[in-house]
């Protein structure tokens, strides 16, 4: 019975004292509570105003239906453009991320290279897409091009990080058999590292593509191409029946992309 007793004392040793656990839970609740109350006061949210807005919401929905299907061709065209922006942006991002990801992988490059690259990627991730898009519109003018550039730039921050993690995740021990067989460095990468990380790379890239589709919907708001331009136009002009058509198309579009992505991911398992 000795091992049991030893195991239990080990667990007890690892468990924090109960009193301090209670205190940290209490402190956490109080801090969150203070933040919520501060938020309510600061934004001046009045629950009665929300309750009184029922008829207005109803009127709003009434103006959306029936949807105006005459704009369908325009909306579908714009959705296709959004799709292309996301696709080209993702492809460009894959190219940049392959290089930056390899440079950011701790198992491949020395510290003085991978640390600055990791910081660079963190900085890129910290800049919101809409801000990048506005800067790109300023730099290259209106249209899909600034959208593609913005998506490529913005998603490289995340994708290169994922790629670096996939490379770091290849166990060095699994490459020993290739050393033993007399493989060259390139053969080790191709036949040892690549099969281990390829499914992760594809899965991460599909995930990022899906995010890029969603995020590129709003690029048109700042003139960077795609369906966002029409979202802005219809809503500002109070053409809610046209906005309804657009909303339906966007929902179908996003659901479709998600289904395709889900299917591709199941193939990778």
């Amino acid at each position: 019975m000795r091992p049991h007793k030893e195991a239990r004392t080990q667990i007890e040793r690892n468990k924090p004292p109960t009193r301090s656990a209670e205190w940290s839970g209490f402190t956490f609740t109080v801090v969150i509570g203070i933040l919520v109350v501060w938020g309510l006061i600061d934004t001046g949210i009045d629950p009665s105003r929300l309750a009184a807005s029922g008829p207005r919401v109803w009127a709003f929905l009434d103006r959306m239906f029936p949807p105006d299907w005459s704009v369908l061709p325009t909306v579908v065209d714009a959705s296709v453009e959004t799709f292309h922006i996301a696709l080209l942006g993702t492809v460009a991002s894959v190219v940049f991320s392959s290089v930056l990801g390899a440079l950011a992988a701790e198992s491949v490059t020395p510290r003085f290279i991978h640390m600055p690259v990791k910081w660079l990627l963190a900085t890129i991730r910290a800049i919101p897409l809409i801000l990048v898009a506005m800067l790109m519109v300023g730099a290259v003018g209106l249209g899909p091009l600034p959208g593609i550039l913005a998506i490529a730039f913005h998603s490289t921050g995340m994708l290169a990080k994922f790629y670096a993690e996939a490379i770091e995740g290849v166990p060095a021990r699994s490459l020993e058999s290739l050393d033993s067989a007399g493989a060259t460095w390139l053969q080790k990468m191709r036949f040892g590292a690549w099969p281990n990380m390829a499914p992760d790379l594809v899965r991460d890239t599909l995930f990022r593509f899906e995010l890029n589709i969603r995020e590129s919907l709003v690029l048109g708001l700042v003139g960077a191409g795609g369906i966002g331009f029409y979202i802005q136009t219809y809503v500002r002009a109070f053409q809610y029946d046209k906005a309804a058509t657009l909303t339906i198309v966007v929902i179908l579009f996003v659901v479709l992309i998600e289904m395709v992505n889900h299917f591709l991911r199941t193939l990778l398992k």
């Binding site: 699994s174 067989a181 007399g182 493989a183 036949f191 281990n196 499914p199």
Partner: peptide, 23 residues
């Protein structure tokens, strides 16, 4: 190898072919 040292996500054929890389 004692722990086999296989490439887990590759097929039997691809793993055995690793033996040919130096040859």
């Amino acid at each position: 190898f004692q722990d086999f040292s296989l490439i887990e996500r590759a097929t039997v054929f691809d793993n055995v072919r690793i033996g040919r890389l130096g040859r």
